[in-house]
């Protein structure tokens, strides 16, 4: 498969007189192949936006190799800029300009026919409000405008940083449909988001970054499968007896008030057979599959602790075992 984005060993440290030295990205790798809808996940401050900014030439990388559509970034970016649409972090526009004028100026600067402006405004649902000043727009409308600016040049590669930010549920669904239709038309999409359920719905591949490093990459289903502990939830009339029987069968059981969680059961039929043969009838047997949220939280070490405000992803002095765990299913394409 053709590689559309390649990042190897990206490093970036910010230096500030007030805040000192802060490592934002620390040897990060990313691989996006043509036609993928690739999710880019990470907690706040994990280095997502810095990575995208470095890729787009807005931030100077300290080290590493980056290529976009076969061109070395940032040196050869001008060669491929016309084929890359991007929005990075919260989109900001000049408030006194209308959406139409904003896009028209970009189209002019980029040599895109200005007739595209109305098309993309229609595409993102801003057609009727395209002649209003941007300062009157809601965050969601600004987000739509940002996406419109990225679509203006009919990109082959679309890089979207938090595109669902500020969108209402209907807007999120529209954004999802838009990305799907773009992907169906052959556009490669790299999308970063905090809405993990959305990523799971939209993306076929995912890369997870934590503390500036890649901690997981690959097809979404394969990344999830890597965290599948073959667990199932069991409810039965006599929970104590059921637990006893399952333990006796050599299974790992965690007891809860009204159910049991059995681990290490690739086939749930094992549970129903074990209990049924001893006259304990199963009322509920549900396989527990990991979702992206649980994987994300496990990999990034981010589950909330009661009463402890969670900190953004920085360089804490303590050792984080999750940071050492790297699930990499995407080394040169596991699905190739």
């Amino acid at each position: 498969m053709t590689q559309v984005i390649e990042i190897e060993g990206l490093r970036k440290t910010f230096h500030s007189v007030r805040r000192g030295r802060r490592v934002a990205v620390d040897g990060f790798d990313l691989l996006v192949e043509a036609g993928q809808v690739h999710g880019f996940l990470g907690p706040n401050g994990s280095g997502k936006t810095t990575t995208l900014r470095a890729l787009l030439g807005l931030v100077r990388a300290d080290d590493g190799r980056m290529r976009v559509l076969g061109a070395n970034a940032p040196e050869q970016l001008p060669r491929v800029a016309g084929r890359v649409g991007a929005i990075v972090e919260s989109p900001q526009f000049f408030g006194n300009f209308t959406a139409h004028r904003t896009l028209r100026l970009l189209a002019l600067a980029g040599g895109v026919p200005v007739t595209r402006v109305d098309e993309v405004l229609e595409q993102v649902g801003l057609h009727d409000r395209g002649h209003e000043r941007v300062k009157g727009y809601s965050l969601g409308m600004k987000q739509r405008l940002a996406v419109a600016s990225a679509l203006l040049k009919r990109p082959e590669l679309l890089i979207l940083d938090e595109p669902a930010n500020g969108l209402d549920p209907a807007g999120i669904r529209e954004m999802r449909d838009l990305m799907r239709s773009l992907a169906a038309n052959g556009v490669t999409v790299l999308v970063s988001s905090h809405i993990l359920a959305e990523i799971q719905l939209i993306c076929d591949h995912v890369t997870i970054i934590s503390r500036g490093r890649r901690v997981a990459a690959g097809r979404v289903d394969e990344v999830l499968a890597g965290f599948d502990r073959d667990e199932c939830l069991v409810r039965a009339d006599d929970l104590a007896r059921a637990e006893e029987l399952l333990l006796a069968a050599g299974l790992t059981v965690t007891g809860h008030a009204d159910h049991l969680v059995v681990s290490g059961v690739p086939d749930p039929a094992t549970v129903s057979r074990t209990l049924g043969e001893q006259g304990v009838w199963v009322r509920e047997l549900t396989p527990l599959r990991p979702d992206l949220e649980s994987v994300f939280l496990e990999l990034t070490g981010a589950p909330a602790q009661p009463g402890v405000p969670r900190q953004v992803d920085g360089w804490a002095p303590h050792h984080d075992p999750a940071a050492d765990r790297v699930i990499d299913l995407d080394i040169r394409g596991v699905d190739a």
């Binding site: 787009l56 030439g57 807005l58 940032p74 970016l77 001008p78 800029a81 890359v84 991007a86 990075v88 989109p91 900001q92 526009f93 000049f94 408030g95 970009l106 600067a109 980029g110 600016s149 040049k153």
Partner: peptide, 16 residues
């Protein structure tokens, strides 16, 4: 204003 409003960043995404 252009540096502050993100206009320059938007432009650089088009003309890097």
């Amino acid at each position: 204003a252009d540096l502050n409003s993100g206009g320059v960043v938007n432009l650089l995404l088009w003309r890097p």
